[in-house]
Amino acid sequence: MSPDQVKAALDGAVAGVSRGSGDCSSWQRYGDTGVTAIYGPGPRLDAMSGPPVRLRDVELIARAPSEVGADLRELARREGLPVRVNRSGDPEVAA
């Protein structure tokens, strides 16, 4: 999606933070929505019709974020692991 498409999908939400990196990727954080959009060069994957993306038995795409989060917390509980989150979308910031 383009920044304009993300804005439209979020009912006109305005990005509060925008950043770029040396590899031509960039990201925009829409703080009130909890969405961080990450953009980069090259072909794009469509999260609704693209290839399946899973972590163990948890399907990560084409689902409500709350459902994915609940399933990831359950997976972590079963495997005795902590859940850490990087809400900024910044690949340089540890979760």
Rank of each mutant, 00 (worst) to 15 (best):
A76E: 11
G22E: 13
V93A: 12
C24W: 11
A70V: 00
D90H: 12
A15D: 04
A15K: 09
S66R: 14
A47C: 00
E92F: 13
S21P: 00
R54E: 01
R56M: 05
L60M: 06
G89M: 07
V93E: 15
A13I: 05
R77M: 08
E59F: 05
G22I: 06
A94H: 08
V17Y: 06
G34V: 12
S26P: 02
G89P: 06
G12C: 10
G80E: 05
A64L: 02
S49Q: 12
R44T: 13
E59R: 14
S66L: 08
T36I: 00
V58E: 03
P43V: 13
G69P: 01
P82T: 04
V6H: 09
G50M: 10
E79C: 09
D71W: 00
S2Q: 05
A13N: 09
G40Q: 12
G80S: 12
A8Y: 03
V68G: 04
A70T: 03
R19D: 05
E74T: 07
D46C: 15
G89S: 08
E74K: 07
K7Y: 01
R87F: 05
P52M: 06
A9Y: 06
P65T: 01
A8L: 10
A15C: 02
A37K: 14
A37R: 13
A64K: 03
Q28S: 11
L10H: 05
S49R: 15
A70Y: 02
G34D: 11
R44H: 15
P91M: 07
C24R: 15
V58S: 07
R54G: 00
P3W: 06
G22L: 11
G69L: 00
I61W: 01
V85L: 12
E74C: 03
N86Y: 02
V58G: 04
R63D: 01
L55I: 08
R29Q: 11
S18A: 14
N86D: 05
E79F: 07
R19E: 11
W27F: 14
A37W: 09
E59G: 08
D11F: 05
D32H: 08
A94C: 04
